[in-house]
């Protein structure tokens, strides 16, 4: 077998076996007190933790939250609820891939920085290292996984009109003035 293909299969095997192992342990030991969990249609408690952790880092602000010009937080934008509804509306084959991607982020990709810990338990700096390693991986599968979760989270975040003030985007023409414009937090 050609080397690249072998390596790709090895990564695919690693990711899927990690996800299988993870499927036994991942349901354990997650915070279930989060009130959002009861409202989820597709995401399990562990996935709520993973998507939260992803969104916090992928959409981390360049200005401290609360300061003038700071964007809304991913929690304020209800990124997790959006991702849940997206997965719930997806065809079963696609939903399965998304669940597998969250499993791989949580249990397999921390290995990219040689960490045995789950993604949702890593420090912010280590989560950033995992995400950077995913984005720059030489394996298309890993980069594709990064692109997939990034797209989903960015969609959940930038759909919120409160983020548009930061961008200077004035929203849909059919609904102007766009709801949720936040001029007070928009940097002049």
């Amino acid at each position: 077998m050609e080397r690249r293909r072998f390596l790709r299969s090895a990564v695919a095997w690693g990711v899927s076996s990690a996800a299988v192992v993870a499927s036994f342990v991942r349901v354990l030991d997650y915070d279930r007190s989060d009130r959002r969990i009861g409202h989820m249609r597709a995401l399990a408690a562990w996935e709520v933790a993973v998507v939260d952790a992803l969104a916090e880092r992928l959409c981390a602000a360049d200005v401290a939250y609360g300061e003038l010009g700071a964007p809304p937080t991913p929690r304020e934008c209800e990124v997790v609820a959006f991702v849940d509804s997206f997965v719930a509306a997806s065809e079963p084959a696609i939903a399965r891939e998304l669940h597998a991607a969250f499993g791989a982020v949580e249990h397999a990709f921390p290995m990219l920085i040689r960490s045995p810990r789950r993604f949702s338990r890593l420090s912010e700096a280590d989560r950033d290292r995992v995400l950077a390693a995913m984005e720059s991986s030489s394996f298309e599968l890993v980069r594709g996984c990064f692109a997939g979760v990034k797209s989903l989270v960015m969609m959940g975040y930038y759909r919120d009109p409160r983020t548009w003030g930061v961008l200077g985007y004035d929203g849909p023409l059919v609904a102007r003035p766009a709801g949720g414009w936040v001029p007070l937090r928009h940097k002049p």
Partner: peptide, 12 residues
């Protein structure tokens, strides 16, 4: 947002 590279503060 999806097209621009990176994530986090630099992306923002």
């Amino acid at each position: 947002a999806v097209t621009l590279p990176g994530f986090g503060a630099a992306h923002m």
